[in-house]
Design a protein around this nucleic acid. Structure first.
Length: 262
DNA sequence: ATGGTGGCTGTGCCA
């Protein structure tokens, strides 16, 4: 049996967050970290600083916006950039790889779903289209019967427990019926919302807007780890690490951390 | 709480 820690974190710019990211990595030492919102093209991504901590760093950058990556102490193979059924997507929002751990392995994906605001816009219809394609791909992945960890910023607040006040989310694209139904659809394929599965009553916020929101704990749970049934069986612990949200120059998101034994 | 913040960009867009 091998203990493995896997985290997901929307860093809101890998360059602006480099020091915070390095500090958290040195303290928490996750084996795998799924990153979102790099906000940098490939040439502008700081690599050596992270590789010097003995991580493999698989990146899918984009100028100014989006961008996702996988940091892994273990070798990564079978890497996919973009959803395979949406490989013409111009926005870098999905990267998937197989992490080789001893003679076993797990499949992970780092996901940055579109925000989709305002509703009744092209950005909202793109979000719906993107989530539908993600749903179709997630269904395909289940056929492999692997340990699958789909982690990232889904930009979906699934239920009222996942927000400080659902009235703040009226007309927000993270909380529309259509978006929440797509989340349910993914769950109904056979995935588990691992945080909610293990903590049925804890809000588990992962995002607080800049300003006074963190101080007042006006947050939302929009970063998730969706797990295949095999993967769910392997969980030791899952928790939100709120510490780096309180540091200087923080991201507006904070890491969601999984500890497994395979 | 539809911007009071923050990041990247290029004189605005996105979250």
């Amino acid at each position: 049996m091998t203990k493995v820690s896997i985290a997901t974190w929307n860093v809101n710019s890998i360059r602006a967050r480099l020091n915070v990211l390095l500090k958290w990595l040195k303290k928490s030492k996750p084996d795998i970290l799924l990153l979102q919102e790099l906000k940098a093209q490939e040439d502008d991504i700081p690599r050596t600083e992270l590789e010097d901590l003995n991580y493999n760093f698989i990146t899918f950058g984009q100028k100014a916006y989006n961008g996702v990556a996988i940091l892994s102490k273990y070798p990564v193979s079978d890497i996919t950039y973009n959803l395979p059924n949406f490989n013409q997507d111009k926005q870098s929002r999905y990267i998937e790889g197989f992490i080789n751990i001893d003679r076993k392995g797990i499949r992970v994906a780092s996901i940055y779903a579109p925000n989709g605001n305002p509703i009744n816009s092209e950005k909202y219809s793109y979000k719906i289209e993107w989530l539908k394609k993600f749903c179709n791909h997630a269904e395909k992945l289940l056929e492999f019967e692997e340990y699958t960890f789909l982690g990232g910023d889904f930009n979906i607040c699934p239920k009222s427990l996942d927000t400080a006040d659902e009235n703040l989310l009226i007309n927000d694209a993270i909380y529309t019926t259509g978006v929440k139904n797509l989340y349910k659809k993914i769950i109904n394929l056979g995935y588990y919302d691992s945080f909610r599965n293990i903590n049925p009553d804890m809000p588990g916020f992962t995002y607080w807007d800049y300003g006074q929101s963190f101080k007042n704990d006006i947050g939302v749970r929009i970063d998730h780890f969706l797990l295949s049934p095999y993967a769910l069986d392997k969980i030791d612990k899952i928790y939100v690490d709120k510490e780096p949200r309180a540091w200087e120059k923080p991201s507006d998101h904070t890491p969601l951390v999984l500890e497994i034994e395979i």
